[in-house]
Design a protein around this nucleic acid. Structure first.
Lengths: 130, 130
DNA sequence: CTTGAGCTTCCAGTGACTGGAATCCCCATG
DNA sequence: CATGGGGATTCCAGTCACTGGAAGCTCAAG
């Protein structure tokens, strides 16, 4: 398979696939003309990577997950620990965003949003003084 | 004021303050020795920026917000519209993270996490096939 | 033979900093 | 007066995960 076909089947842009090769996540073969020659196993890996990335795992996490996936002697506890930690970080991120959201929503509600210059949003931003 | 004092009072790292000058968000004066000379108004701006950034506004948004803040003839509707759009994007981000979180939490729950290799998390990652 | 799509590499840019190196300035102590 | 330390300066490089674009090669169709 050429990169275009693999891109379509994996849902990843060709640019991203080349990048993944650059950083050593995949190692496709090459045709005589220099084109990348993807095996089904490469496509499989790319799909794995795409799924992991869509769950928010970092590239380095993906590297570890792929290694675990290919390691028949892995212990599921290793995978679970990685996922658990990632989950914790997602929760932290959500909490941070929710706090932001709360404050911002209050400010937006308080702003009448008309043609006058008076604005509680700007007032809040300027209010953090020492 | 020197940069150290401003950093402490604004809560921003000196590195960040220099960066904000680089990109034109502030324009402190200079002492004869080359040190930056911050006026109270510079500190005020930095506090404004810090607050806006902590609410998740991008640097470009901050630029606009500062301009609006300094424009006596602004209309609060402009500010509100900017904040409203930002709020919408935060909501979208939260929604995305929550979806991730759901899937991931289910997978973590399903994984027994012991010394055996069998693992629903890896199974899920590998399951996205054509 | 030409055209156009698809492939190649390489370089640069994104956002918002952050780390580090090399150098300079100021003040206080011996 | 030398020195030492803390704080300031600039500049370059790195982060993360791509993404855009330029220049050039390959292939299949007409």
């Amino acid at each position: 398979m050429n990169i275009g076909e693999v891109a379509e089947k994996s849902g990843l842009p060709a640019k991203t696939i080349r990048y993944y090769e650059d950083i050593g996540l995949i190692r496709p073969l090459r045709h005589d003309n220099g084109y990348r020659a993807f095996r089904p196993s490469d496509l499989h890996k790319l799909a794995f990577l795409g799924r992991a990335r869509s769950l928010g795992f970092s590239i380095e996490d993906c590297r570890v997950l792929m290694a675990l996936y290919e390691d028949e002697t892995r212990e599921s506890a290793q995978v679970k620990a990685l996922a658990q930690e990632h989950l914790t970080q997602i929760d932290a991120k959500i909490a941070g965003l929710r706090a932001m959201r709360e404050t911002l929503a209050d400010l937006v509600d308080a702003c009448h949003g008309d043609s006058r210059p008076d604005c509680p949003i700007l007032k809040d931003l300027a209010s953090v003084v020492k």
